[in-house]
Nucleic acid binder design. Sequence first.
DNA 1: TCAATTCATACTAAATTACTCGGATTTCAT
DNA 2: ATGAAATCCGAGTAATTTAGTATGAATTGA
Lengths: 157, 157
Amino acid sequence: MRLSTRGHYGLKAMFDLAQHYGTEPIPLKSVAERQNLSEHYLEQLIARLRKAGLVKSVRGAQGGYILAREPGKITVGEIIRALEGPIAPVECVKEVDPKECDQADYCISRMVWARVRDSIAGVLDSISLADMCREAAKIHQTKSFDHNRGGWTLYDP
Amino acid sequence: MRLSTRGHYGLKAMFDLAQHYGTEPIPLKSVAERQNLSEHYLEQLIARLRKAGLVKSVRGAQGGYILAREPGKITVGEIIRALEGPIAPVECVKEVDPKECDQADYCISRMVWARVRDSIAGVLDSISLADMCREAAKIHQTKSFDHNRGGWTLYDP
DNA sequence: TCAATTCATACTAAATTACTCGGATTTCAT
DNA sequence: ATGAAATCCGAGTAATTTAGTATGAATTGA
């Protein structure tokens, strides 16, 4: 029940783009460095995301990638589906074009997997990139608690 | 986000044993036939289930397998963990012994996967083999609705 | 014009999957 | 006792997937 690195790394990259949303295009190189990923591998992942219409590219020098929509309007579910295909613990309960076996309508285990699929999709579709950014901001605040002063410090990059 | 056939087939086999619970030991051969699975492959899967204490074996002629506990006391979650290992969409949120990366405590995508893991575990741990048997009985009833008589027929094997 | 970038395709080593195969061992039934 | 029915065990293997790397062409701002 594992995600491949495609979904894992791809989400990291999209989160990185979300954190820089509203500025210039972000080159993959910097995404790869910040998230500690292979740039060449990321290229392949972002190609899928581009084809799915989740990011836009700007070619040439000073080019890079920007989210195709604002972070609040892109869900983790869309990202994962673009990278890994339809959510499905087993083939016969794929969200689109399921390959049903001949016992499909009385196969009980199939119902279990359909429930798992719905539960996964429910979580992924309920989280947007904006949610992740908010979470990151919250954590950053916590981490900058100043133990010497015994109080909160302002984040000032 | 796929389950391997281990979990998929293994659950089918356990469900089959559950439907025959309380009788003689069930040989793998018959399980394999009913569930349409390779007997040799099932042997490997059931070995894991036995080592996990979920089934008991009876060796020799007229031998076979029986559930180690009644179907109501065995959850799908236990079965899947025995066959596939700890539930974890990504390594860093494994239920036991997670391999955390150095950014573990401020990695936001990690939190997403932890929520997915909990959601999957929640579903799997909430379904017992007895639940599946009840579901099967319900469906069988529905399927034997007699459209000619316009009423329900009794199941009489 | 050059350096930074995206874009596209092909290749590959390693791991995993989904089995098969062969045989040893145990035990019931006759 | 013997044979058939079973579990048990470990090795082997073809196909697929994974997680990249390699190479180079095309695009574009400074």
